[in-house]
Design a protein around this nucleic acid. Structure first.
Lengths: 206, 206
DNA sequence: GTTTGTGAAACGATTCACAGCT
DNA sequence: AGCTGTGAATCGTTTCACAAAC
């Protein structure tokens, strides 16, 4: 498959959300212009983004909402369930485990780990927090595709390495460090400090 | 000031974090190549990014770590404190209020609001959760520069509008919607569903 | 000899504009 | 007549490569 820019994938995800709204409102078809104006982009951008994956529209008519929703779900790989391990049972991990959008999109948290003896053994949403010492045993018995790293910065790289060695294919990283992984593993880092600093920059330079 | 790309600002923020590490390790100077290899970019990129703001380096020698840290803090506007209102007292809001990086970077949460009577009146990190009904009175008495929107999607736009009317200059938005604001207001949206979907896409298409 | 700062070249993403289909 | 799909043009960002500074 051709290489698609990350910005394109992000917009596809946005279109999907907008289309779900159109669907709720009972719309049968939608034009690239309608999607664009709701999504803060241009109609040409919408058409080009979609055209990477095929021609889903009808000239003179627009796109079938239902069909486009199906196609986007398929393109984004949302038809299946992903098994997720949460590495770190702090505040953010806790918020994520309870986040409905997580499960809604097919991401199922099946295990949680921490180093803190005060947290180990506690039950979270029906899952027991386990010691990171058991990481290897547990993930070998119950493999996962995705690990969410929600640990302090200094522990993140070592735990990432252990997860990768256990066959994890993707990392969602909330620790403020650049993780090093083999090429075949996908990493997505969400760095709150960085977001704050871009806000600060924008507030300062105007 | 010339318009700087968002991607550039994000890298500056990254360089600052790396430089703080170099500083801890006692390094006096650092080359663009050293910064680049730690940060996953190229030396030319580092030099170009910095050159937008002046010539901070010495040819043959590199950059003074201490000076560059100071200059980057200044460029990013991190010398001052920002007053922040947290709109929504759910799980994510709770995690954010307790996030040390928030205060470390000069972002001080001074009020928290929610609609849920079960939450109103509770104390969080020394702050009392207030009813959103008091938003106007409270923010007029104690103005803030930044509002963090941590509400369900359907409440986000209305609350954003009220904050903007009260003089808020920047919005950090965790609700999965595109917010509409006047041009002079900065919005940064962190959309977890979108991050998950780009992961899902990457896992599917390989 | 080393490393910066920066024009010029290469690359990539967005926008334009229109032919072609419904 | 209306709207898509897409090459071509434009715009923005990254990389190259080298002269200038230390």
């Amino acid at each position: 498959m051709r290489k698609i820019a990350e910005s394109t994938v992000r917009r596809l995800s946005l279109y999907l959300r907008l289309l779900e709204e159109f669907e709720e409102q009972g719309a049968e078809t939608v034009s690239s212009e309608a999607l664009a104006s709701r999504g803060g982009t241009t109609s040409a951008q919408v058409r080009k983004d979609l055209s990477f994956f095929g021609s889903f529209g009808k000239r003179g008519l627009g796109y079938s909402v239902g069909e486009l929703v199906r196609r986007l779900r398929e393109i984004l790989g949302l038809g299946r369930t992903y098994r997720v391990a949460m590495i770190g049972a702090g505040k953010i991990g806790s918020a994520l485990v309870q986040y409905r959008g997580f499960r809604q999109r097919g991401f199922e948290v099946v295990s949680i780990f921490d180093v803190d003896p005060a947290k180990i053994g506690r039950s979270w949403n029906g899952l027991t927090v386990q010691s990171v010492v058991s990481l290897e045993g547990e993930l070998r018995a119950h493999p996962v595709e995705i690990a969410v790293i929600v640990t302090p910065a200094d522990a993140a790289q070592a735990l990432t390495g252990r997860c990768v060695a256990l066959g994890v294919k993707a990392i969602l990283n909330f620790a403020p460090v650049q993780l090093t992984v083999p090429d075949e593993v996908v990493v997505k880092t969400v760095n709150l400090a960085l977001e704050l600093e871009t806000l600060s920059y924008a507030l300062t330079n105007r």
